[in-house]
Simulated scan of single mutants.
Amino acid sequence: MHTIESLLGLLIHISVPVFAIASMLSMGLRTPLRAFRNQLRDRQTVFSVLGANFVVVPAVGTLVIWILGPLLPHQIGAGFIIALCAAGAPFVLQLGAMARIPYGETAGPMAVLLLGSIVFMPLVVPFLLQDVQVHGWAVARLLLGTMLSPMIAGIVIAAVFPQRADQFARIAGSVAAIAAVLMFLSGFGSNSGLVVQLLLSPVMLVAVGLVALAFVAGRIAGDLAGSTLTVPDGPAILTSQRNIAAALLVARTGGGDDSIVVAILLLSAVGFVMLVPYALATGVRRRRRQGERATLGVLLGVVGPKSD
């Protein structure tokens, strides 16, 4: 049993950076420079989305976690706080396709949030978690190397080989999907006792509440956004799904116990369970309204156009 747990622990240390690199490479391959350019020109949207993700969610969420601290096991709250500080999840692109949100309205803001996370997390996470050893420069270096660099590489490759960009993106996306599955299986499997304990505790209600808080903050940001966003619930999905890759990479630099990793995975899983049905139901409604066929492949975003 100890050998299996050791192997699972080793697997999560490998799968986390692989997931981060592959997912960001895939995102870069699919996101043209014009998505960044068009989004940055709409300052109202940029500020509203940045405010929701880097002011409202971390501040209010951290306050809630501090208030409910006695209900949370050791360092679970720390894991939640790290996740709340991490924005710009690549999986939002898939959720946006499910919900029939134009591709540029998820890709552009997501890229802006990723850049924001690279600046925000090294500065804020060590301040909020002074009892956890997190070094700002180590966090920045890790995020730059495993998230920003692959994204830039993907953009460059897509510009040089435009005919093969989609094929490369599918390969990178498949690697990211496999790494994500291994990441969850190894993270939960090596800490099965703690996972069972958390599933039967108020921690689950706290996780649901944090995801709901992020959704509401994002929905308000969507109402306050500028003209480049035509679907107001796009920022809600964008804000609710936190950047698990960035959060896990930061957690690795802190040297905390495995409960931080489990907390990040748990919050991400709760967000996934809550957001996927919403995105699918919303996608069905929008496609029927526009007279489109709502087949399973189209709803899951694996066939058909990218939604723009």
Rank of each mutant, 00 (worst) to 15 (best):
H2L: 11
S201I: 08
I81D: 00
T295L: 04
V302H: 01
T253P: 00
G226E: 06
L265V: 07
G193Q: 15
A176T: 09
G79I: 10
V216F: 07
A172K: 00
I157W: 10
T230H: 12
V156E: 09
P305V: 15
I220H: 05
R170Y: 02
T3I: 15
L93P: 04
L265Y: 01
H13G: 07
T106A: 14
P73D: 00
A214E: 02
I76A: 02
I157K: 01
S240E: 05
W137A: 15
R43C: 08
N53Y: 02
F47H: 08
T45Y: 02
L50C: 12
G108I: 07
P17A: 06
M151Y: 12
V211R: 00
V262R: 02
A86M: 02
L199F: 13
R289S: 09
L248E: 03
F54P: 01
L123Q: 06
G61L: 04
L249S: 05
V175T: 14
P232T: 11
G154P: 00
Q39P: 06
P232N: 10
H13C: 03
I264Y: 04
A176Y: 02
T228Q: 07
T62C: 15
L265K: 03
D233P: 08
L185A: 15
V49T: 00
R164A: 13
A22W: 03
V60P: 01
M274D: 07
T253W: 01
G51H: 05
V64M: 15
P73L: 04
I65N: 04
R285P: 04
A87L: 11
A86Q: 06
P126D: 05
V206N: 00
F47Q: 10
L280V: 13
W137V: 14
V284S: 03
M204T: 13
S201N: 14
T239H: 01
R34Q: 11
Q39N: 15
A221G: 07
L68Q: 08
T239D: 07
I76V: 14
V119D: 07
L11Y: 06
P32F: 08
L50T: 11
L200C: 08
D257I: 04
L40A: 11
R285T: 12
T282R: 15
I171F: 14
A83G: 08
P109K: 01
G79E: 09
L182M: 13
G104H: 09
A251E: 01
Q241C: 06
V276Q: 14
S227I: 10
A52W: 03
A269I: 06
A279S: 12
I244A: 08
L267W: 01
S192C: 09
D308V: 13
M24Y: 07
G256Y: 12
L93R: 05
R242H: 14
I178V: 14
Q44A: 03
I244N: 04
V55C: 14
G173Y: 02
